[in-house]
């Protein structure tokens, strides 16, 4: 990971950013429909509202019950507005942790799908404690005594994605990206020019391969050669295979081992000179 960012790498990172945001890229509900059976959506945070940018529900994978928690973008303008462009608000994160805790109560595994440009930056979100909602999710996900599997399927937009991302296994689709800041914002800060996003994308090392190399992500889920949107069925099959495999690996662990395993996984992140 120590080589200078070259033009070729830059274009790979930028290509992934483009594919991750592709208008035809499969979204969470597309995968949910193809992978699970009898998905029943569960709504609301029991405090303020129901955030359409996060879809939660129980479902069955090969007949086994799982809780699915997923960030959802819209396809057309109306849907985009309804889903708030996939940018969750505090009530979305609070709904998410509510249903994850419900799953834990009944010993059901949790599967989360990450796909957001970021948590919504707006007045109402701040008023209702966007930061607190994300923070609480991080702490409470760490405590869940059930298998937690997280898959970044498109855009892993910083804290907005991580708020659903504390899992025993964290995977990325081949053309997904996961970053602390969007390439545009990064470029705006560094070069005061958001048009230099392509440069920033490669500097940020946000591709699935980069994150596996950094020890942050456990594996890459392959997509069809031209990207998931060219063959959503194939992409869903490869995601489903990985979920099956991951669930069976984690099924061998006790509750305490699952919590310990998740703790140690994140505890190791970051390297230092001592």
């Amino acid at each position: 990971m120590s080589e200078e960012s070259s033009g070729a790498l830059g274009s790979r990172a930028w290509q992934a950013v483009q594919l991750a945001r592709h208008p035809k890229r499969p979204h969470s509900l597309d995968y949910i429909q193809k992978i699970f059976t009898e998905f029943e959506e569960v709504h609301g945070d029991r405090a303020f509202g129901d955030d359409a940018a996060i879809v939660c529900g129980f479902a069955f994978l090969d007949g086994k019950p799982v809780m699915v928690v997923a960030e959802q973008k819209g396809r057309d303008t109306k849907q985009k507005l309804f889903r708030n462009f996939g940018m969750p608000k505090p009530e979305g994160y609070r709904k998410a942790i509510r249903v994850m805790q419900m799953a834990a109560k009944f010993k059901r595994p949790v599967i989360t799908l990450l796909d957001t440009p970021g948590a919504y930056p707006g007045i109402d979100a701040e008023e209702r404690g966007q930061a607190e909602a994300i923070a609480r999710n991080l702490r409470e996900m760490a405590r869940l005594p059930v298998p937690v599997i997280c898959v970044c399927i498109g855009e892993g937009g910083s804290g907005g994605a991580l708020a659903l991302g504390v899992g025993n296994h964290v995977f990325m689709m081949e053309n997904a990206v996961y970053s602390v800041i969007s390439p545009e914002s990064c470029a705006a800060i560094i070069w005061r020019d958001s048009a230099k996003a392509e440069l920033a994308a490669s500097a940020l090392r946000l591709t699935a391969g980069d994150l596996v190399g950094l020890g942050i992500v456990d594996g890459v889920i392959s997509e069809p050669p031209e990207g998931a949107h060219t063959d959503p069925e194939a992409a869903a099959r490869s995601l489903k295979d990985r979920l099956r495999q991951s669930l069976s690996e984690l099924a061998a662990m006790t509750d305490d081992e699952l919590v310990q395993h998740r703790y140690e996984k994140f505890r190791r992140m970051g390297t230092f000179v001592k």
Binding site: A135, L138, R139, E140, A142, R143, S158, G159, L162, G165, V166, Y178, S179, V180, I181, C186, I189, L204, R205, L206, L211, L214, I216, R262, Y263, F266, R267, M269, G270
Partner: peptide, 19 residues
């Protein structure tokens, strides 16, 4: 920003320790 996703993951690491 300069430590990318590594710095992002510190949020999860610290929050887990707080758990």
């Amino acid at each position: 920003m300069q430590e990318g996703a590594v710095s992002l993951m510190q949020m999860a690491k610290i929050s887990s320790a707080l758990m």
